[in-house]
């Protein structure tokens, strides 16, 4: 039994949960933060899929740069998504 499969299933489920929360959330700042948590769990998935190169590029890009750029965008435009 490859134990990393259990952790892979766990982290991909966390990623699924926070994907749903990020897409459904009305407050865009919260949505960006949920998206960052989803990215963090996907970093763990990539590490367990034996891809250390992708982890090194994925961690700064999706946990650092995307939230920063999106928060700049939200700060300069509107914060709440109307239904």
């Amino acid at each position: 039994m490859d134990f990393s499969l259990v952790l892979l299933a766990l982290f991909s489920t966390i990623g699924l949960i926070f994907t749903y929360l990020a897409v459904i959330e009305k407050d865009l700042v919260k949505a960006v933060i949920f998206s960052a948590i989803q990215s963090t769990s996907y970093v763990a998935v990539l590490y367990l899929l034996r891809a250390p190169d992708i982890v090194l590029v994925y961690l700064p890009v999706t946990v650092g740069l995307y939230p920063a750029a999106l928060l700049f965008l939200v700060g300069k435009t509107e914060r709440v998504e109307e239904e």
Binding site: P52, D53, V55, L56, V57, P60, V61, L65
Partner: peptide, 10 residues
């Protein structure tokens, strides 16, 4: 593990 793309993103 690493390279130009990764270092640029960091």
């Amino acid at each position: 593990p690493g390279g130009g793309f990764q270092a640029g993103a960091v």
